[in-house]
Design a protein around this nucleic acid. Structure first.
Lengths: 116, 116
DNA sequence: CGTAAAAGAAACGCTTGCGTAACGATCGCC
DNA sequence: GGCGATCGTTACGCAAGCGTTTCTTTTACG
């Protein structure tokens, strides 16, 4: 089932969600970091640095750095792939899942409290 | 009319929009910059540095710097308030309106092409 | 007046992210 | 076994953002 939005609703939703997220959470993830995080948690694993770089259309160091940062925040984890030890498999964490769950609730609530 | 979303739809929408925005646009606005931009364009003027700082819950230099950056990108403009020359009134620009219009289209299109 | 308050910008040192390029580790294959 | 290719990381110099503090201009008000 598609999500039908008017232009006013689309930008209004983004506005209220972004605003609330800025107000509530000091962790100021960049757009790229957010895209990586969502990709990891919404798309079936396994996820690799190379794969994420290709999906986002960015270079590998961008992914490495984002994983460094989000790893320090506990939002993701890295594990060496034992079957091909060149690879690193990116793992989800409980804290990351919780973070996105709260973020999803924020979107839903802001959407619900919109009046066109 | 409220926007009703399931958790899957909410995060899925954010995922696809964020991903596409990263892929398409090299201008990598931070979450705060995006919040400021949307506030300026979706809420009736006038907008001041102090007002935006209060709305976002951040300090004034954050707003000043964001306006510097987005001003250089042509997304916003600053004009001294002639009635109270301490104030600066933040003005919208054609380019900024165009930027958000395209972004709104992106949200709408990604929402439309979602299948739950 | 003249002085305190307010608004925005600028300065400071620091942290984080960027793109490019180089690097070690590991694999595949002859 | 050796050697080129692949994967992720690190190094480098640079740009941009941060919080705090200080400064400049302007207003308000006793």
């Amino acid at each position: 089932m598609p999500v039908e939005l008017t232009p006013s609703q689309a930008l209004g939703l983004w506005h209220s969600v972004t605003l609330e997220q800025v107000r509530v959470d000091s962790r100021d993830l960049t757009l790229r970091q957010m895209a990586i995080l969502l990709q990891i948690y919404l798309v079936p694993p396994p996820h690799t640095v190379r794969g994420l770089a290709a999906t986002l259309g960015v270079t590998k160091p961008v992914i490495t750095r984002a994983l460094d940062t989000m790893g320090a925040l506990g939002l993701v984890d890295r594990v060496r792939d034992e079957r091909d030890r060149r690879n690193v498999v990116i793992k989800r964490t409980v804290e990351g899942a919780l973070y996105l769950e709260k973020f999803g609730d924020l979107i839903i609530n802001q959407g619900r409290s919109m009046s066109l």
